[in-house]
Design a protein around this nucleic acid. Structure first.
Lengths: 289, 289
DNA sequence: TCTCGATGTGAGAATAATTTTCATCCAATT
DNA sequence: AATTGGATGAAAATTATTCTCACATCGAGA
């Protein structure tokens, strides 16, 4: 098919007669530019005629010039994407042009998400989701950035009628944890798994008989040791000391997975709850246009 | 700037008038097919006229149909190279095995990030970063999920000594916005760009002479219209009504980019501030092992 | 050396695609 | 009800693409 058009052109061009060969060479010299040229421009650039260019297209099995053009553009996109992927692993320095930094970040983040997904154990997620659905109360603990993640996850679960709380305040968290009991769920989020407040709250919850879940990058961290179940996020401490910065994506992803699993288990409810929520929010939006 | 054409189409199509929107939708439904169609075919498929398709191309800054075509083909190539196809368009349903759902989510999220990166204008980010560095105060507005994003971004900027606040409470936000002045910066985050609280706060900030920045998925939304600068996030409403869920990744990414740009501009400071912050946090962590 | 046929080529005609122009329609406003 | 302005598609105008054909070149054989 279209795949490998450039390769085929490179391979077969030398064997072509004079004028056709010049067309091939003109394309190979700058495929992206060729994709953007009209047949006339390309004919001039290769020192031949439009007719010859059309013939060239036919030689390579395209219906016409448009076909060749699209194929060249597609391959150009492939090449660009391939270059992109290479950028992974770079560190962002203070002098990097921002363009490059953005590229590196995007590559790093998206790879991080893939890694998180790969190591995420669907069985554990399912167990957590079932416990969440059955629980009388669900608490999510996190501090600082992980606290914001906890807040998002909590809010989202509340919106589908899961009785769920997340606290910014460590004392309130502890107090609430003390009220949990058998059959409830507590989720602790900490990138390094060593945040004291989260540890304490999760320990308290565990003492009261709740199922404890750790969301952390380190499977051997105190938080992980302490919890009944562990959902590991991908770590990858990189890029300009941003450390936990990228970890957020990973934590969010894991909690999204839990959310989806929970939502799947309460489908009709979920849908109805959505309707209501959306209507409620709608009044806070301004009109279209 | 072929990069991000599809993303831009996705972002702006909803705000387009009837016939143009149908063209956009037809393209989004199958970009690869659109790349291979003549203008006439595409016009028919979208139930409009060739003239409208040409107009559509102009709206997105292409010289004509050929330009759009090549851009679409290029992105199709990118997509193929990155294995993006996987799961696109899939909805996660209540009976999907969780494994599959996780895969779809990972693909969607990482693609989203790449699209966000592609659309992100480094120049705008730079402008924002410079303003942030120079500002006496920086406010970040967001409600609900976007509020959590605002909180994260704010916290991170504070950690490198940017005088920055974010409010969960709409009234406090408005009150603080009223205190801004010339040379300050206000950033409003809203996926759809129609959240009243955010709009009001940002408008207030603008009235006081602050530079206003919108972070939204819709370039033609009220929030975007109102702001001095717009940083568009990639939209892509998919997967099980999660809507804004994926948008968080996109919003975070954009704000990360701003953060990095700010950090680059204050490098020594940043490093020193990091040291201090990390020492301060360390006391809240339990010992290793 | 000449002729013939095969092949490759570009000029220009023919066709098809694209762009532009313009009349009409519709919705919003006065 | 009249007016305005934007959006739209029909059709004209333009441009790009494809096709046709005559001619040039080259090598083989007479």
């Amino acid at each position: 098919m279209a795949a490998g058009a450039l390769g085929r052109i490179r391979t077969e061009t030398p064997a072509l007669p004079e004028a056709l060969r010049r067309v091939g060479e003109a394309i190979l010299a700058d495929p992206a530019a060729a994709a953007r040229s009209t047949i006339i421009t390309l004919a001039e650039r290769s020192g031949s005629s439009p007719a010859t260019v059309t013939r060239f297209c036919r030689v390579f099995g395209f219906a016409g010039y448009a076909g060749l053009r699209v194929a060249l553009a597609t391959e150009d996109g492939r090449a660009a994407q391939a270059n992109w992927d290479m950028g992974v692993g770079h560190e962002i320095g203070p002098t990097d042009p921002l363009d490059a930094a953005i590229g590196v970040m995007a590559a790093a983040d998206s790879r991080l998400i893939q890694e998180t997904a790969a190591q995420l154990d669907a069985g554990t997620v399912t167990t957590v989701a079932e416990a969440v659905v059955a629980a009388r109360r669900v608490l999510i603990f996190g501090v600082s950035t992980s606290g914001a993640v906890a807040g998002m996850a909590g809010g989202r679960l509340r919106r589908i009628r899961i009785p769920c709380w997340s606290h910014a305040d460590a004392h309130e968290a502890l107090a609430d944890a003390a009220l949990l009991g058998e059959g409830d769920v507590a989720i602790g989020i900490s990138h390094q798994g060593r945040t004291r407040e989260v540890l304490e709250s999760l320990a308290e919850a565990g003492d009261r008989g709740a199922l404890t879940v750790a969301v952390t990058s380190f499977a051997r961290s105190p938080l992980a040791e302490l919890a009944d179940l562990v959902l590991t996020t991908a770590s990858r401490e990189t890029t300009f000391r941003l450390g936990g910065l990228a970890a957020v994506h990973s934590q969010l992803f894991v909690l999204d997975a839990v959310y989806v699993a929970v939502a799947q288990r309460t489908y009709e409810q979920t849908n109805e709850a959505f309707e209501r929520t959306i209507r409620a929010l709608e009044s806070h939006r301004v009109e279209r246009n």
